[in-house]
Design a binder for these strands. Sequence first.
DNA 1: TTAAGAATGGAAATCATTATCAATAAGAGG
DNA 2: CCTCTTATTGATAATGATTTCCATTCTTAA
Lengths: 159, 159
Amino acid sequence: MPIRNGLRPMWWHGRFRGCGYRITAPREAILDVLSKSDKHLSAEEIYIKVHTYYPAVGLTTIYRTLDILSNMGLIFKFDFGDSRARYELSEGPKGKKHHHHLICTNCNRIIDYADFIDEEIKLLEQTEKELLKRYNFKSTNHLIRFYGLCEKCQKNELN
Amino acid sequence: MPIRNGLRPMWWHGRFRGCGYRITAPREAILDVLSKSDKHLSAEEIYIKVHTYYPAVGLTTIYRTLDILSNMGLIFKFDFGDSRARYELSEGPKGKKHHHHLICTNCNRIIDYADFIDEEIKLLEQTEKELLKRYNFKSTNHLIRFYGLCEKCQKNELN
DNA sequence: TTAAGAATGGAAATCATTATCAATAAGAGG
DNA sequence: CCTCTTATTGATAATGATTTCCATTCTTAA
């Protein structure tokens, strides 16, 4: 599992250089881990994965890089209430677009969903319009989560 | 500012005892502070307010009590991303019902929004129904936030 | 009034995240 | 390919919110 694929340019290299950042081995490793996972990884989880085949990387670098990536908009940073930030690629090969979360309060599984329902889109648009009218609040972004029971936990509840 | 109003029963005493908890001076002080504030207070902010006229109370007790209150559903616990939990009364005299938040990304002001329009409620219910159909996810609660600019910050932006 | 054990507070411990700083390495220019 | 500038790195220490410990105090049922 070579991390640095020679000089082969990655999809994010351009954007990265454009922002004045250098391409380094740790950064490639971190993005490699992120692009190969479909989970919401914490800094430490990323650190461990990177560390297995690249022991030289320090946790500090993980945090620093995640911060840069987050500010650039290349990754999303979430807080699901387990007292650690979690990160997820927002673009590229396996990248996700803006999405909402379903959070199982029993097993803590997190389900991403982006195939928004017509009703949901309508709800958002109307609400944003209403917020502007009533509070003069100009919304530019939103966070939507549903808490409840996932399929498995509903079945297990029958026991 | 007497905290303990003699033996006058407070609105929350019954519920509190019902859960097997004792009525104590620190707990009365904390609920007093919460019920007199309409802000989203952090544990330390509550500690300082309680501390001014009740110096004996320790920060540990603040955390413990907030935890109990939160589990009982008497207060809401929120995380607005400033690395400290914030609490708000959910019932009683000044208590709020379920509401959503508008968060100004410029001045960090937080506006509660609970005067939902019928349309919004209907759309939300439909969305939850649809989530059950598509993902077999049984939603019991939700978190909705809008990030953007409040009235003041929109005006200041013109400068 | 009293005894059982719930509640308290101060100090120490946790734990995720940041700050510090000397050493290293990316990459522009020659 | 070599060199210089300076961004980047990693080890370690620091920070800051929240918890854990534990001996002492207080609430409350009987």
